[in-house]
């Protein structure tokens, strides 16, 4: 089971598509039952996925910062011991360096994700509607959905590192 949950197919195919399907199902079941049954606009969950990905990435970044602090504490303890365990110190230093590098770019990634969210939502508002109630399938549904799924994939890839 663990192998399956950490597999590439689960991370980059089942998880993003499953999230989209769940989003669509929730959108459908919460709508006023007086109105039309399932409609194509229910498939437009791309922006929700992008927002979820963005917030998940922020939470992931916080976890990384906490991990870095923990590594630094362990490193300080190791350096106080004599003789110093060089292997463990090197290992922790490498981990700390990797986390620092990742955290250094996280702010920019969040900024780009928010920029993307603004851009796609503007695209949907300006060009995504064919009429008052009907969405354009490409600019209103497909493009935001693809960006939403891509955002989730990026976050999953980040979490896997």
């Amino acid at each position: 089971m663990v192998d399956f949950l950490t597999s590439t197919v689960f991370r980059y195919l089942i998880f993003p598509i499953g999230s989209a399907i769940l989003g669509i199902a929730i959108k459908y079941v919460t709508r006023n039952d007086r109105y039309k049954s399932f409609q194509k606009e229910d498939l437009a969950v791309g922006l929700e996925l992008m927002l979820t990905a963005c917030l998940t990435f922020v939470a992931l970044t916080t976890d990384r910062a906490v991990s870095l602090a923990s590594i630094n504490r362990n490193l300080a303890q190791l350096l106080q011991q004599t003789p110093i365990d060089i292997t463990s110190v090197n290992k922790l230093q490498t981990q700390a360096l990797n986390l620092t590098n990742t955290l250094a770019t996280s702010g920019y990634l969040v900024a780009f994700m928010l920029l993307g969210l603004w851009g796609i939502s503007t695209l949907v508002r300006k060009r995504g509607w064919k009429s008052d109630t009907e969405m354009d399938t490409v600019q209103g549904i497909a493009v935001p959905l693809a960006f939403g799924v891509l955002s989730l994939i990026v976050v999953m890839a980040g979490a896997a590192q």
């Binding site: 980059y12 598509i17 969405m135 399938t137 549904i141 959905l145 693809a146 939403g148 799924v149 890839a157």
Partner: peptide, 24 residues
């Protein structure tokens, strides 16, 4: 493999979106 699977996912999503009428 990771990039290939991610690419497949995105392509499937685009197809579902473009053919939203049929899927519905």
């Amino acid at each position: 493999t990771d990039l290939s699977v991610a690419l497949i996912t995105v392509v499937i999503t685009i197809i579902v979106g473009v053919f939203a009428n049929v899927v519905t």
